[in-house]
Each structure stands twice: as C-alpha cells, then as structure tokens.
Amino acid sequence: MKSEQNNKNAETLTALQELIEVVAKLRDPDGGCPWDLVQTPQSLTQYVIEEAYEVVDAIKSEDKSHIAEELGDLLLQVVLQAQIFQEYGDFSLKEVVEGISQKLIRRHPHVFGDVSVQNADEVNQNWEQIKAAEKGETPSNNQLTEKLSGYTRKLPPLTATMKISRKAAAAGFEWEDIDGVWEKFHEELQEFEQALASETPERQEAELGDLLFTIVQIARWKNLDPSEALQGTNRRFIRRLKIMESVADRPLSDYSLPDLEILWQKAKAILSS
C-alpha cells in the first residue's frame, strides 16, 4: 500500500513539474504568450478570487470532473503568481510550498509533536495560540480590534461580518438571548426607514449597514450561513426568471408589472411542483 502511494506521489510531482514548465513557457519573453507576459500579481488578483468562488460552486455541484477542473484553474493562479515573483527575484514556488508545509507542522503539534488534544475545539485553540506566537502577538487592549480590522480588509463583507460577530460574542459582547437580537433588528429597521424618509444618502447607507449587521447576528444565533442564504436566493431568482423567459411569448420588458407578477407566480409553482 505504501509503495502504491509513493508511486502516486511521484506521478503527482511529475504532473506538477509539467505545469510549472508550461507556466514558465507562457511567461518566457522569447516566444511566450503576450497576455501572460503583461500580467502582474496585482492584475491577477481578480482571477484568484474568481477561481476560488468557482471551486466552491463546483464542490456544491458534486460534479467530480468539474471540481477537478476548477481546482486546476485555482492551482494555476498559485503557480503563475509564484512564477512572476520568481522573475522579480523575490521567491519561488519552492518557498511557497516549504512555507505552508512548515506552517502545518508547527500548527499541528498533536500530529507532528507530543501534544495531546481531545477534540476539534482544542485543535482550534492551539492553532490560534501558535498563530499568535508566530506573529509575535501578545495580549493587549486592542488585540481583538486589530483582528477584527483584518477581517474587514481580507474577507467579503458578509463573511467578515459573521467572523466579527463570532469573535465579539466570544469576547463577551453578546445579547443574553435572541429576543434582544430581535429588539435590535426592529430598532435598526425603524432607523433605516426614518433615514430613507428624511436623511442624507450617507446616513441611509449607514443605517442599511446597521440593519444588515443585525440580520447577520440573527443568522449566527440560528446557526445559519448568511452568504449561503443569499447565494441560494440569487440562484432561485435566476431560475424563476429563466422559467418566465421560457413561457413568455415576448421579451419580459414588454410585459406590464401585473403580467410579470402572474408569470413570476407560475414560475414559483413550477419550481415547487
């Protein structure tokens, strides 16, 4: 069994080496691809994000070949970024791979060392402690806010809000029960309505943000994923529109609002049948 695994590992390394060589050729000033040659780490960031989302979407589809394809596209972004930084003389894919391997070893002392853990929660606690030590962090009055600020810089807004909410709750900034969250929701909804009626666009946007933040708190209390919930709504909305287009005898823009509502209800009925 071990010999078989070693053979598979060797085949994987051979395939990875081929990808590295292909990317290097694409970036070769002598005969490379004009598009690849003008790319920079900054210009490629949008593709890193897009490919990551496409991997997630493929995993949800449970189509194995599609998952493998999208993982390949994401891996390409890693190899291409490393290739460009190697050309700059900064680091190569070697440093990237060595770095993540050493990080995994350091942060899993219960696997690679003599530390004992009882469950996944203890693994997470050790991970956070080791991560803080690696960064030279020590407890301080603003350590929590520094971490929360990092979420706002690095994560999509809904994901960042959920992270901020969980960390703040763990630090004691929490309602006693969900009734308090609902009270806050109705308070923020009223303030948003008032802002829409009589305040500036800046205040309206601020109150909308407060309302959305509170909705995420409700989701956290109910163990719901707000990002997944919104994605699901987006998908359902598109599916309904597609059915409306399929049963319509002219462009949807030619229909009156009451007629569109009739088509919308037909689409809902078809999807629920």
Rank of each mutant, 00 (worst) to 15 (best):
E176K: 11
S246E: 13
L263P: 00
D179R: 08
H110M: 10
G72V: 06
L158A: 06
A132P: 07
A206T: 01
E95C: 02
A171K: 05
S65K: 15
Q42L: 05
L37C: 04
T45K: 08
K103Q: 14
E21C: 09
N6V: 12
V97K: 03
Q265K: 11
W175V: 01
K64C: 04
F173I: 06
L212Y: 08
I178V: 15
K60S: 06
L260D: 02
D36G: 09
V123M: 10
L212V: 15
P157R: 02
Q46D: 14
L71A: 07
E183M: 07
L252F: 12
S149L: 13
A15W: 02
I262N: 10
T159Q: 05
T45H: 06
N223R: 10
A171R: 08
E207M: 01
A170P: 03
Y151F: 15
K167S: 07
A58H: 03
A206G: 00
S253D: 14
A168V: 01
E245L: 15
F185H: 03
N7I: 12
V48Y: 01
Q17R: 13
L104S: 12
D90K: 10
I84P: 00
F112V: 08
Q5T: 05
Q118D: 13
K266C: 04
L144N: 01
E228L: 15
Q204L: 01
Q217H: 13
R166V: 09
D30A: 06
W35G: 02
H110E: 15
E191S: 02
